[in-house]
Design a protein around this nucleic acid. Structure first.
Lengths: 130, 130, 130, 130
DNA sequence: GTGGTCTAGACCACA
DNA sequence: GTGGTCTAGACCACA
């Protein structure tokens, strides 16, 4: 469930954040679940513990996970984002950017909507391919 | 039509590329249009000429613009992307990432589709607000 | 009267110390009162006995509680802090830090004084909410 | 204006954050001011650049400073906290904690209010002692 | 020159 | 054993 690609242009610590978000979507992670410890995950992924720690810190800032000192790191139980938060605005900007890019690639609205439908279908079918 | 934000996390040179793509979507730019010169645009935006040059270089690589020596830089007349190009795959990945982020923000498929519809509506109405 | 939050950034052993101090302010604890035993409290709060023991040790160092061997732990009867002790200096530093933080949050002196008045009012009314 | 104490129990990176907040209160820093670069400040304070970078990152998350890539770090021009933000709630909790500590140190409401008044007076007089 | 990312490794508080 | 802090130092994108 945790996989990172060190040659990607996306920083490793962001890939880990995405791994967790994706795990939530796929129900591989549910509130209360314990994440691997910083040291453990860094070994599994053959990366530096600091890099994992950075990911966990950001996930904590996002409110997605909670750290219990001396015990470990857990998926938050009561996570609920405020509407109109910075992140929702950021997501809207990303969508707008996608529309712009689609247009220049000669792809239209239907293409986008169909692709979104397909992505949701894949998740429901448990199709976990990248 | 060219606006950049130096504090954004998106590199300025990418913002310029986005400006051009957005101009195409809004029909502010059509094939054959002349772009401002590197020096001119760098003055207008108060940024380093190297940054503008980098944007134009990438736009040229993308096939979106053409440089005619001694005359200037123009929107390509015969631009048509290959299907299944790297960029379409990248766009699909961005869409998938958006679905993942939407889920963790408790936003569902309908929200995404409605937002996309809204973005297209805004562009059609000529509503150019950010 | 004893409540701890394992996800808080404040160590649990300090939260217990604060519980006792708060109990004194609210007159839930008065000199001579018996505190629960280390084992008892650790069970009630579902935390490690070592953590409770650490709290009691520090409260004893502060002079706030007294251990009577074989009988238990009690709120000190003759507690009176020396003026200008380390702790008073620490409290002054905290106040200064609060002033600095208030300013950067655009809150002024009146806000702080009103809030302090409100806190005292709440305690007098027996309003024990957090 | 930047001073850190490596023997303090407050992490160095937090001390730097406090330095900036304090500079704002004393008007040693005003919106638009450039902060020393990460490398520069790390040399001045004889600490590791990563530690300075961590401070700057958090100040950026707080919205107090803005990073302009390749140019440097600046005090935000349009900083205005949302009311009832997490930080204001945290400040209120700190105030409550101070009231509790004051009581156990036999200090009363008047002491706190007088001390706050004194702190503001000192800042107005330009008394920058710690 | 500027900040961002990452590795390697030490030491610490907390539970 | 758990995460938090810090140092030392490398490499990179951006302007």
């Amino acid at each position: 469930m945790f996989t990172v690609n060190s040659t990607s242009s996306i920083p490793i610590y962001e890939q880990i954040i995405n791994n967790v978000k994706e795990g939530l979507l796929k129900n591989l992670l549910v509130p209360g679940d314990k994440l691997p410890s910083v040291r453990e995950l860094s070994k599994t992924l053959s990366i530096n513990p600091n890099t994992v720690a950075k990911s966990y810190k950001e996930l904590e800032n996002l409110g997605l996970i909670e750290v219990i000192r001396g015990k470990g790191t857990f998926i938050s139980k009561n996570y609920s984002p405020e509407p109109n938060t910075k992140e929702i605005l950021a997501l809207n900007k990303m969508l707008k950017q996608i529309v712009i890019n689609a247009h220049y690639l000669k792809l239209d609205k239907n293409y986008l909507i169909q692709t979104i439908n397909k992505i949701y279908d894949d998740f429901e079918k448990g199709d976990l391919n990248d």
